[in-house]
Design a protein around this nucleic acid. Sequence first.
DNA 1: GATAATCTGATTGTCGACAAACTTACAATA
DNA 2: TATTGTAAGTTTGTCGACAATCAGATTATC
Lengths: 267, 267
Amino acid sequence: MATRSSGLSGLEGNRQVGRLAPVRRASTVDLIAERLREAVVDGSLPPGTVLGEAELAYQLGVSRGPLREAMQRLTAEGLLVIPRRRGLAVRTMTIEDVRDIHWLRARIEPELGRRILTLPPAERRTVLAELGAEVKRMQRALKKDDARALGDAYLDFHRVLAVWGGSLRLARMLGTLLIETRLCTFSMFEHFEVHRDLVPEHVAFVEALAAEDGERFDLLVQAHLEAEVRRLLAEPEDSKEDESDRLHAETPDEPQPLDRLDLPEGL
Amino acid sequence: MATRSSGLSGLEGNRQVGRLAPVRRASTVDLIAERLREAVVDGSLPPGTVLGEAELAYQLGVSRGPLREAMQRLTAEGLLVIPRRRGLAVRTMTIEDVRDIHWLRARIEPELGRRILTLPPAERRTVLAELGAEVKRMQRALKKDDARALGDAYLDFHRVLAVWGGSLRLARMLGTLLIETRLCTFSMFEHFEVHRDLVPEHVAFVEALAAEDGERFDLLVQAHLEAEVRRLLAEPEDSKEDESDRLHAETPDEPQPLDRLDLPEGL
DNA sequence: GATAATCTGATTGTCGACAAACTTACAATA
DNA sequence: TATTGTAAGTTTGTCGACAATCAGATTATC
């Protein structure tokens, strides 16, 4: 993925000779958290997975202390859930979550496009180039019917939007939302699905940005996200009925599935 | 503050007799995190404070393990910063942060109002009542010139918006943003400041909602947040010049202030 | 036969300790 | 006098262990 610049140095025009960016070694906790995020994203830890601390710590080659710290971080991000005295579980997204996540993205991503259009021309060209590259990745993946690669390119496409169009804070938020999006996919389907529409939709995104048409970009993104929700919830073009109890029917009266409870009550 | 309902039970029409919400005892980590958040909000840990783990753990009456876990959580929320081998520091917000936070809030809060207007009338009345109560608190605080109380009521007012207008995820996000807003105040001023405009602005919010005028609410919130940024950055009505180096001038060439670096590189 | 009580095994939550790393201060040299 | 090298002290990062707690299975009782 494209990292704009490390640390705080990205302020335009502040480039001073001899001023080096501070070195920042990642702590063990960072490493573990990153590893867990990867595992969640690439599906090696599907939603609902319940893991023991000791076992997981052994696999990662660390002791339980740093692992527990990393768990707390991932919990705050909403990817993990810590049922008391049962280790950790990968969060399972509900229909509500799907709607919520995409609603939030629809609130944020159009603005990113608008912001990108206000960048100086040189940077804007860079963004377009990076976005174009991701689209090419998507096309290649589609040709090979490689759903995994397609999904990854999709994630990176939107990450590029976040990194260039947003602040650090916004990029972080959207990054989390994107991982959650992936979790939605895993939660709703057994396997990846190849959505052929995805590629033309993203081609249109880039075209709208190239044409400096923020308004069109806005509409396209909205449409894409709505379509995405429809695909995830497997609603046909016109929703037939309220599907909010389809999933409830799966868990008729059991106490709680162990991984959809327990968001930390962070205020 | 007003808590809508604990856990997952807030789904309308799902009220089943005999179905109890699961009990959820807060873990030690939860308690510590909550305590730290409080301390940040009420100003007993002003931005830039650097604390040693051992000392802090002793004060809280816990060992370093749980404390470190709580630290990670607060770090993920952006309130704390963990410089390597220097304990923990309360984050200092920069001018960029002020703009960013309020930009995000301006993206989210108007939508909350719109959502609240779609609630069933009974619930909507409750919301209006709660909001009205917070405004009354603000008025009382203003009369006593109690900046602290005014600020607290302000926070709770917006928390009510988040709880009723948003999902769990959204409420959590906005909750964090609100704490960060408070951190902005502490970062920019030495002490609380009483903003007399705050009260009429919030009265207008409630009126707009009571009149079911989402459009007006939107505009009012935008205006309020812009005014808030102006107040925080102490820009007079028309910004005279680029103030982005005013703060840089405070820290001319020192390496880094120890608490504005090091956001976790969360994807 | 079903429900309740008991027991056991395993896992977590917490703590204390050790060693490595870093900061600060001091001294030596150019 | 300024700068670099050295050393001591402090704090963190990590680990191992203990004990309380909980889940599951077994047994007893109605």
